[in-house]
Simulated assay, not measured.
Amino acid sequence: MRWDFRLEESPGTPANDQPTFLRACEAFLLQGMAERRWTYWVAADDATLVSHIFIQRVPKVPKPNRIDDAFGYVTNVYTRPAYRNRGIGTQLMARVLGWAAEQDFESLIVWPSEASVPFYVRAGFQRSADMLEYLVRPYVL
């Protein structure tokens, strides 16, 4: 689904062939799970994955009043086109938000596409004036 998601966002000829990409993506996902840095949420229709949300736990530097703190980086939020507008992504996001509260994350952050902003706003995300961003290089879809 990651292959489809990125090509939907940025049509054209990919820089890598699909088998090379799939091997690299699988290695990344398995390592993230093994190291417990990433949590992957999925929705399925029988044996077919139809939607997913990835969350990276980002630990914060200890503070005198809170030694162990973290926030979540939300990414790779995608629902297959044939399953959109059925509330699947909304239900999945609601579970993610509940889980983030159970994990006691301080916040969740996301860099949404313009088209996805309404989805995040409906889920309760708000624009923040607290963050500044320095772009080291242009974002590559």
Rank of each mutant, 00 (worst) to 15 (best):
A115Q: 12
S107W: 11
A100G: 08
E8R: 02
I67D: 02
R137N: 12
L29S: 08
I67H: 11
N85T: 09
Q18F: 01
Y139I: 08
F28P: 00
T75M: 14
A24K: 10
R137C: 10
V61G: 05
P112L: 01
W3D: 00
V117D: 04
D130N: 12
F119D: 01
A129F: 05
S10I: 10
S107K: 15
L49F: 10
E8L: 13
R95Q: 15
V117P: 01
R84E: 04
E106L: 15
M131L: 13
V117M: 07
Q103G: 07
L49S: 05
W99F: 11
Y73N: 12
G32D: 03
E8G: 05
A123M: 00
V50N: 07
R122L: 02
E35S: 12
W3P: 04
E26A: 15
C25L: 15
W3C: 00
N85I: 00
V74K: 06
W3E: 06
F54V: 13
V96F: 06
Q91Y: 01
L29D: 11
I55G: 00
Y139S: 10
V50T: 11
R86A: 11
L132S: 15
M93S: 04
F125E: 12
L49P: 12
H52Y: 08
W111R: 10
D45S: 04
F71L: 13
F21H: 05
P81Y: 02
Y78A: 04
I53W: 03
W111N: 09
R95G: 12
Q56W: 04
A82R: 06
Y120N: 02
V42S: 13
E102S: 13
I88D: 09
D68L: 15
V50W: 05
V121D: 07
A100I: 07
L22A: 10
V58E: 09
M131T: 02
R6C: 08
V110F: 01
P112E: 03
L30R: 14
Q126N: 14
Y78L: 04
W111Q: 11
R37K: 15
R122A: 10
L7P: 01
Y120F: 10
F5W: 08
R84L: 03
M33H: 14
Q91W: 00
F54Y: 13
E9T: 12
R137I: 08
V117A: 07
F71P: 12
